[in-house]
Structures are given as structure tokens and as C-alpha cells.
Design a binder for these strands. Structure first.
Length: 763
RNA sequence: GCCAGAGUGGCGGAAUCGGCAGACGCGCCAGAUUCAAAAUCUGGUGAGCAUCACGCUCGUGAGGGUUCGAGUCCCUCCUCUGGCACCA
């Protein structure tokens, strides 16, 4: 087990310091699922009848115990301690250890028939509680996850026959077993507040349990639920349902003994939001957040509750019974004690095996035999003359991906993970440029080590959370300098392709599908088309080999970047590839004479306009590349290149810059052009620095701005680039078309945004 | 059901802060070149109306709102994609 839960809070708080997409952060926060609330102890009444007063007194003097002191105490976790007065029953998960202990021999007198078990396969007749509970627990354990999901609609469960005491009002409440409570979360037991929890409400309706309200909802909710529920009833005719006080009275008196307003309103839908506490002596009238604190504090003083935090996140079972995984460097001696292998015995490598399947047996009680158990020789190691048995489980699938990026730092080092100076060089990044500091300092360093991590969103919660946890452990142990592994995360989209299903809904090989008359056919049968992530499961994968051999690697690469934004999924459509292929060819022809192979580059300076265009391109492309906007960067290069087609010879300053900008996108052709340009015959373009835009060339002397009248562009004016609002207004009102448009109209207002536009409001 | 993301021409997509919707590419149409074709080059290409070179109206999934001005901000709804599944 890896105690990732011990890092839960840090895994949440450090998210704020990472440059990650917000949706991924949200998914991680939800996955960790931190919830604040309280643990509360309930005394289960023994069949003989313990005196609860005695227990309350003992608790008052002993205080809150770390674990319940006896088997008749049920500890629950709740995020809503303020609803304790509304707890009308309790539920234990079927796997809860107390279930078998609290069940009495016979049903208590007056047990409603509905409580004696509601679930498929319930034993017939009036079965005693123990047999009924056993039957329910066995059935719950036999249910697969899929079955549990299918049955989410109907709540099932059984009354255990036992009661507990509600610590706030000492009311006796029944204890049920139901599989809607999970053993794996919280304490595996809950207090049920049907008026203010959706699931408890469903269960209460099913089992005919009381649903007393203890939180007053806001007026909107009352109007939507209470007023709507009663307005058709004849009894409501005399009531003013628009009056908030009437609605509150209806809601507050629902289900109170003898006060159901003649059954006019009873709660059928839980209100699970915050409101004002009602029918709750110790916290009456308090808003939810204050009520929570008050009641928890009050119970804490009496040793009955304690503030608590719970996580949805589970600890990481770091072991699999599979062959393909990293073997553990652990052996066991004769007494079964685990021993770490000595460094000289490392690395442990997987044995060559013919058969990777786990060993099976007919004996249901036999221990499982993982695949490595078949490697009988490998499984035994002799150390200091004594035989040891190897650990036969392997590490789980995310183990390697948690640290591979660290190994890349110093891959040939066979003594360390990575040399500390190498690790610092790559992983420590100062926030504001400059030299890397000696050690991590949150004030000056980025929290994450890897500058940019590009990966699919499917890793949002597993790989990316485990890797963060692993890195933090290594950081705490002093092996890595930064607290986080990946500073900036970018989720690329999926490449999608058409996939086809036959009449059974089964995917057919996409490459065998033909289109005819707008319909799709595979082997003579019509198939249905859909779009999905390209891959094996949808049988729609296309290898890029053919494109690569037809158009070359540069075109393939460029096309993949040009298809659209990196983070968006997009269909693979080979029809569009010729576009970028033509671009590369046109670029080549602009710089090299096709017939002679001679360079068409001149040392003459570029014209003013061309130079401006170049620097505008450099500026735009730089920004696009920074934002990973490869598609728009390429569009700008195409635009510049298109301007060169009409020239007899391309000025060297333009050619060189264009080729440099192209290099990261289409490296082969850029390298070839670079060598032809003769800019340093020995060097590769890879060592050139990226072109820089001259800011003075980005400013135009004059600009054209639109003039809008009645929200439409009616004319354009040319003004100095730095013209102020007054100058723009003057120029706009003088423009002939504007004057024509304004004839007979009154100008109410003129809005001028310098450098952008003029908007004339007429009335 | 819950969480997240996305809906823009025939297609992929562009639009940095609320300021000219449709950059760039594909496709399509026309022209040049050619004996012809491919390739290449030039021009055009959201829809409708028009006294088809002035111009007008509509238009970013639907409906409302804020604003001088909305693809962009707010509310309601629809569709699609991905993730989660009774988490007390």
C-alpha cells in the first residue's frame, strides 16, 4: 500500500501553484474528494437494554476516544452534523463488522413488515432477523459492480432489529443494513437524515421511515417544491401559497406527529443545501455553517463527536498479479520476513517465460499464484548461503510512468537516479529567468520541474496524480529539488476518425468500408458511421506511413500541426494534406530555381512593405509558438510565403528569417534550405536563434479603422496610428459616406476607441 | 444523475482585452499557361435581395438579457464529446 492519502491535502493545495488546465485541476480535486465534517458516535442498544445515560456520563469524563471503546458504539462520518436532529435511522454497510454483532434473535415488537427486508431474492415468509440480514449480506457480496450499477434505482436493505441512541436528543432510532452505504468510504456507517440527503430520502420513502425536516430551505425552494406539491389539494384552497410564512409552516410541520396538516404536505424530496436549522434545540435558528460548528463543539465537549476530514481518494494498492510490471527487489526468508535486496543484487529483471498466465487451481481456498510463480528457478535466490523466496507480484501499471521523466535527465547513470547537479540543472527553474538557484526556494523558483508536459486528458486523475504523489515523496526524501513534477501541463486533443458499426452495434474494420450514395457499406452490408478517437478498439486506426512515403515527413508533421488547435480533438482528413504540401513546394520554388537549382535569393534589402510584413510575421509567429498555436503560426508563414511568389528574387533577410521560423515545424526542408542559403556551411540551423521582431517596424504610420453607424460598418477612414479620439471623430464626421449616411439624423454620441474604431450613435 | 469541454461557410478552422465575423488551408467556380491534361500561376467563393461595380438585409446551436457595440459577458434551453458513478 502507498499512503497517498497522507499527501491528499498537499496534492490539493499545490494545484493552485501549477500552470495546468483548470478542468484537470477540478478533476483532481474531485478525485481526492476532500470533505470536512464530523465524526459522531452513536450507542447501539444491546438487546438487554443498556442504560444510555451511563454511557453518556462515561463519555463526558473520558472524552472522545481515538477508536470506539466497545462493539456497541457505531462511529459515523457526516458533512452535515447540523442535521443530527433529523437523523431518524442509521445504516451500516453490508461488510460492516458490527452487522453480525447487533442483530437480536427476534424482531422487536411492532416491527413494520416493510422493514423486514426489501431486496430481490429475499427469503419467503417471516424469517428471523439474523437469517434475513445474513441473506442480504451474502447477496450484496455476491453482486458485481455492474449489477450494483444497474440497480441504482431501487434502494434495498433490511432492518437489523437493533436500535441506536441519537446523541443530540437521545431518541431511539432503528439500524438498517443497506448496500447504498459503502464500506470503503468514511466509517462504513451513516446516520440517515432523509429530509436533507437524497439517498436517505429515497430509502426512507421505500421503507416508510419518517422524514422530519430540520433545515429550512430558502423561499425559492419552498415555492418550487412545497407550493407546487399542494396547490391542487382542496385543503390548500384557504391557504395563501404566495406567503413565505405559510410555505415555511407547511414545510416545518411536515411529518411531525399528529401535525401533518391533514396530510396536506409531506416531504418527498430532500433539501440538501444550506439553510436555517429548525426543530434542533441546541442550534435552533442558526444558518448551516454556524450550526455545524456549534453542534460539533457541543458534542465534542461531551466526548461524542469530533471535527473530521474525509477523502474519497484511497490508498494505492501497489501490487499486481501480472507478469508485465516491474518486479519488486524484495525477498522473503524462511520465516516469511521481507528483506530488501542488496544494491549488488540489483537490478531484478523479469525471467523469460513461455507462459504468462496465472496458475489456476480447483481449490477455492488455495492462495492465488501470480504468473511469476511459474518461474520456479527464478523465484528462489540464495543469499549468504541461505535460500530466499522472491516477491512474485509486480508493480502496477502507473509505477514506471511516475518517474520516467526523472530518469531521462541522466539516463546512462548506473549508480544514481540522476546526479544531483544534473537534476538541478534540468528541474530547477527560476520564476523570472536568470540563473538557477542552488536549491528550491518557493519565492524564486517554479514549483514544477518539467517545463511543459504534453499529454492526453485521459491521464487527468490516475497517472498525473500518482506521479505528483511519487515526486513529492522523492522531494521529501531529498532526491529531487522541486515539490511538483510538471509545471505546465497541456492536454492535446485526440485524432478522430470515422468508425463504423454493423447492425449488432459491433465495430467493423474502417478500412474495408465503402461509401455509396451517401450510405456506408462493409462486405455488402450497410453500416452506421460515427466519429471517435482513432485506435484499436474502434477499428479505425490509420498509419501515417503512406502519407509519409507520398508527401514526406515534413508534410505529415506540418499537417498534424495545421489541422487545428493542439488541445482540440479533430478528425483525420487526408484530403486536406495537399494544402501544406503545396506550401512547402511553393516555399522551395520561391527560394530555389526549379530548372537550374540556383538560389533565387538576393542580397538587396527588402522593400519597406515587405520588411514590415516580415517583422509582423515574426512577432505573430513568436506569440503563436509560445502559446503552442502551431496552426495559426503556420498560417502566418503561408501568408508571408504567398507574398514572396510575385518576386523575382527573395531578399536574403526575409528568406533566412522565414527558414528559421519554419525549422521547428518542418525541420528537414528547413535544414536543406539553410544549407543552400549558405549561411554557415558547417553549422546546422538547429543552433540558430529564433528571429526577433524589430518593434519599430511593427508600428504603422497610419491605420484604417471602421466607422460604424447604427451598429454596422458603413465606411472606413485612414488616420494616423496614434490619432486620439478627437482626431478620429473629426476624420470620421468629414468622411463623405459618413456625411451621406448621417443626413437628416441627429448624432447622439460618438464613441472613438483609438487605434480600433469609431461608432456613431444616431437617434 | 453529477462534473468538465465544445457547437462559427460545403469541410478543417481563424478572430490576443467586448471593437471590421469567416485569417489560412481544403473543396468549388472562372481565367492564364498547354496540342491536351496534370502541375503551376491569377482572380472569385457565408446566405438572401438589388436599379447584380452604388448598396441593403440576415448570419457564429435556440431563445432572452447587459452594452454605443456580443462569436466573445450573464440567464434559460438543445445537441455532441470526454470523465465519474449512491463518497454520507
Amino acid at each position: 500500500m502507498m499512503r497517498i492519502t497522507a499527501y491528499a491535502d498537499r496534492l490539493i493545495s499545490d494545484l493552485d501553484l501549477l500552470d495546468w488546465p483548470e478542468p484537470i485541476k477540478i478533476m483532481q480535486r474531485n478525485w481526492i474528494g476532500r470533505s470536512e465534517g464530523a465524526q459522531v458516535d452513536f450507542l447501539a442498544l444491546a438487546a438487554g437494554g443498556d442504560d444510555p445515560r451511563e454511557w453518556f456520563r462515561r463519555r463526558e469524563s473520558s472524552g472522545w476516544p481515538a477508536a470506539p471503546e466497545s462493539e456497541s458504539v457505531i462511529r459515523v462520518f457526516t458533512t452535515r452534523p447540523d442535521t443530527l436532529y433529523g437523523a431518524t435511522y442509521m445504516v451500516l454497510a453490508p461488510e460492516h463488522p458490527l452487522v453480525s454483532r447487533i442483530v437480536p434473535d427476534a424482531w422487536p415488537e411492532g416491527t413494520p413488515a416493510a422493514w423486514k427486508g426489501q431486496f430481490p431474492g429475499r427469503p419467503e415468509g417471516d424469517v428471523p432477523p439474523r437469517a434475513m440480514v445474513d441473506a442480504y449480506v451474502r447477496r450484496a457480496q455476491a453482486k458485481s459492480d455492474v449489477e450494483r450499477q444497474v440497480e441504482t434505482k431501487e434502494k434495498t436493505g433490511v432492518f437489523t432489529g437493533a436500535f441506536a441512541v441519537n446523541p443530540v436528543d437521545e431518541e431511539r432510532i432503528p439500524i438498517f443494513v443497506a448496500d447504498y452505504v459503502l464500506m470503503g468510504y468514511g466509517t462504513g456507517a451513516i446516520m440517515a437524515v432523509p429530509a436533507h440527503d437524497l439517498r436517505d430520502c429515497e430509502f426512507a420513502l421505500q421503507f416508510d421511515l419518517p422524514i422530519p425536516p430540520v433545515v429550512m430551505p430558502p423561499e425559492d425552494w419552498l415555492r418550487e417544491h412545497v407550493a407546487a406539491a399542494v396547490k391542487e389539494r382542496p385543503e390548500a384552497a384557504s391557504l395563501d401559497l404566495a406567503d413565505r410564512r405559510v410555505l415555511e409552516a407547511l414545510y416545518g410541520r411536515a411529518c411531525l406527529p399528529g401535525e401533518e396538516l391533514g396530510g396536506i404536505y409531506s416531504i418527498r424530496e430532500a433539501f440538501a443545501e444550506e439553510g436555517i436549522a429548525i426543530h434542533s434545540e441546541a442550534i435552533e435558528g442558526l444558518p448551516t455553517s454556524r450550526a455545524k460548528r456549534r453542534i460539533t463543539g457541543w458534542l465534542d465537549e461531551r466526548g461524542l463527536a469530533r471535527e473530521a476530514v474525509n477523502y474519497r481518494l484511497r490508498d494505492w494498492l501497489f501490487s499486481r498479479q501480472r507478469y508485465w510490471g516491474e518486479p519488486f527487489p524484495i525477498v522473503y526468508d524462511d520465516e516469511g520476513l521481507p528483506i530488501a535486496l542488496r544494491p549488488e543484487d540489483l537490478p531484478v529483471e523479469l525471467p523469460e517465460m513461455e507462459d504468462y498466465r496465472p496458475e489456476t487451481t480447483d481449490d477455492p481456498d488455495a492462495p492465488p499464484r501470480p504468473p511469476l510463480a511459474r518461474a520456479r528457478e527464478w523465484a528462489v535466490v540464495t543469499i549468504d548461503g541461505r535460500e530466499h523466496r522472491r516477491e512474485l507480484n509486480t508493480m502496477p501499471n502507473w509505477a514506471g510512468s511516475c518517474w520516467y521523466y526523472l530518469r531521462y535527465l541522466d539516463p546512462r547513470n548506473d549508480r544514481h537516479l540522476a546526479r544531483p547537479e544534473v537534476e538541478r540543472y534540468w528541474m530547477l527553474t527560476p520564476k523570472e529567468g536568470g540563473a538557477a538557484p542552488e536549491s528550491y526556494d518557493p519565492a524564486t523558483c517554479r514549483i514544477g520541474g518539467v517545463d511543459l508536459y504534453v499529454g492526453g486528458a485521459e491521464h487527468a486523475v490516475l497517472h498525473l496524480l500518482y506521479a505528483r504523489f511519487w515526486h513529492k515523496v522523492l522531494h521529501d526524501l531529498g532526491h529531487v529539488s522541486t515539490p511538483e513534477p510538471f509545471h505546465r501541463l497541456f492536454n492535446q486533443g485526440y485524432v478522430q476518425a470515422a468508425a463504423y458499426t454493423d447492425e449488432r452495434g459491433v465495430y467493423v474494420e474502417a478500412s474495408e468500408v465503402e461509401e455509396k450514395d451517401g450510405k456506408y457499406w462493409s462486405r455488402g452490408k450497410e453500416v452506421r458511421r460515427e466519429f471517435g478517437k482513432m485506435g484499436k478498439s474502434l477499428k479505425n486506426a490509420v498509419t501515417p506511413d503512406e502519407i509519409c512515403s507520398t508527401y514526406g515527413a515534413d508534410t505529415l508533421r506540418l499537417y498534424e500541426m495545421y489541422m487545428g488547435p493542439l488541445d482540440v480533438s479533430k478528425p483525420w482528413n487526408t484530403r486536406d494534406i495537399v494544402g501544406v504540401f503545396r506550401f512547402l513546394q511553393r516555399l522551395w520554388r520561391n527560394l530555389v530555381d526549379e530548372d537550374t537549382g540556383a538560389l533565387k535569393v538576393t542580397d538587396e534589402p527588402a522593400s519597406d512593405d515587405l520588411r514590415r510584413a516580415l517583422h509582423k510575421t515574426i512577432d505573430g509567429v513568436r506569440r503563436d509558438m509560445e502559446a503552442l498555436g502551431f496552426n495559426t503560426a503556420i498560417a502566418k508563414l503561408i501568408e508571408l510565403n504567398n507574398q514572396l511568389t510575385s518576386l523575382d528574387a527573395v531578399p536574403r533577410e526575409v528568406a533566412a528569417a522565414l527558414v528559421k521560423m519554419l525549422a521547428p515545424l518542418a525541420p528537414h526542408i528547413a535544414e536543406e534550405l539553410w544549407s543552400r542559403l549558405g549561411e554557415g556551411a558547417e553549422a546546422t540551423i538547429a543552433y540558430e536563434s529564433y528571429p526577433e521582431a524589430d518593434p519599430s517596424l511593427l508600428l504603422e504610420d497610419s491605420i484604417e479603422v471602421p466607422v460604424m453607424i447604427k451598429g454596422k460598418v458603413r465606411a472606413r477612414i485612414r488616420v494616423a496610428a496614434d490619432a486620439d479620439a478627437a482626431a478620429m471623430e473629426r476624420a470620421a464626421l468629414e468622411q463623405p459616406r459618413v456625411r451621406q449616411q448621417l443626413e437628416g439624423a441627429t448624432v447622439r454620441k460618438v464613441i472613438c476607441v483609438p487605434g480600433k474604431m469609431v461608432n456613431i450613435v444616431v437617434g
